[in-house]
Simulated assay, not measured.
Amino acid sequence: MSAPAATPATAPLAPLEREGYRRCAAITRRHGTTYYWGVALLPVERRRHVHAVYALCRAADDIVDEPGATTPGQVRDTERRLAAFRHTVLEAVDGAPVEDPVLAAVVRTLRSCALEQAVLDRFFGAMAADLTTTRYETWEDLLGYMDGSAAVIGEMMLPVLRPTTPDALAPARALGLAFQLTNFIRDVAEDLDRGRVYLPQADLRAHGADPALRRVTPQWRSFMAEQIERNRGLYAEADRGIPMLPDTSARCVATARTLYSQILDRIEAADHNVFTERVRVPTRIKAATAAAALVRRPRGAGA
């Protein structure tokens, strides 16, 4: 894939692209409700780009998270499927014919946002790592993985959010990291079912905590408190970027940030129990938070 030629945002959508964006929105609403309500404040021509990026990431994630995808007899096949999907995306961006509506929308977005192949390579590299790496020893090791699985998503969003300064890059990366760490903290049981632990092994040992027990102990509480404090530090770093965004984008990011960080509040309210059921923010609260953002100006946001 060469550097994509940007597609003018004002160019009319082809019927296949229009259908693709409709499907991307449906995928986002079904699987990523926090993102869906967070970006509801964006103008439609930018909101659809967020839906397309989510659909792209979801498609790759579904390949590596399929039941049995990482079993010894299936890993090679999963690797081939992921590589084939990556190749299809890159070839389509380069101009290969596209028949799938979702892929057509993804290609339109990648071209409109002029995203470089290096960004996609980092993302697909992280997805491939899920097939062979199930544990991370230190926070720094985990950050290495999250660069391609999370921070890069923040980078993909910048052309959509249209920051007023290049200084917004670091906060955007921090927000991507914050969102994913929240997922890791919430989804411990689900990840265990797939044979993975996305929390630093060194930190678990330091607290004497063992997620495999699947129950809340004093050691687990202290470990989780430390991870939640780290997570909130990432959100605080991301907050520095909100004043660097135009008003509509600032409202969007502030809403998504508020909704995702509420997951941490609910985990604390559940006594750090992430084993018996998935902690969620109800849809009615997501919708109400998005609606409130329409009439509340984010603190420090630009015009």
Rank of each mutant, 00 (worst) to 15 (best):
M1G: 10
M1W: 08
S2I: 13
P4Y: 15
T10V: 14
P12E: 05
P15H: 11
L16G: 07
E17T: 06
E17N: 06
E17L: 02
E19Y: 00
E19N: 05
G20C: 10
Y21L: 04
A25R: 12
I27G: 01
T28K: 02
R30N: 11
A40K: 04
A40I: 03
A40R: 13
L41C: 03
L41P: 02
V44F: 00
R48D: 10
R58Q: 06
V64D: 00
E66G: 06
G68S: 09
A69D: 05
R76A: 15
E79D: 09
R81L: 10
L82A: 08
A83N: 13
T88G: 00
A92Y: 13
G95H: 06
V98L: 09
V98M: 08
E99L: 10
D100K: 07
V102D: 10
V102A: 08
V102I: 15
L103V: 11
R108I: 13
A114V: 07
L115Y: 13
E116F: 00
Q117I: 03
L120P: 05
D121C: 02
F123R: 00
A128S: 14
Y136S: 09
D141F: 02
M146G: 01
M146K: 03
D147M: 06
S149R: 02
S149E: 03
A150R: 02
A151Y: 01
V152D: 01
M156H: 09
M156T: 07
M157G: 01
L158T: 12
R162I: 03
P163S: 13
P166C: 02
A168K: 05
P171C: 06
A172W: 03
R173E: 14
R173T: 03
L175Y: 03
L175S: 02
F179I: 14
T182I: 03
I185K: 01
R186Q: 06
E190F: 07
L199H: 05
L199F: 04
A202L: 05
L204W: 10
R205N: 00
R205C: 00
R205P: 00
A206D: 11
D210E: 14
A212F: 09
P218A: 11
R221C: 14
R221A: 09
F223K: 06
E226M: 09
Q227M: 13
R230G: 06
R232L: 11
G233Q: 05
E237Q: 13
M244R: 12
D247K: 08
V253T: 06
T255M: 01
R257L: 13
R257W: 03
R257D: 12
T258N: 07
L264G: 04
R266H: 12
I267H: 03
D271I: 07
V274T: 14
V274D: 11
F275A: 05
R278E: 05
V279I: 15
I285E: 15
I285D: 15
A293M: 14
R297C: 00
P298W: 08
R299N: 04
A301D: 10
G302T: 07
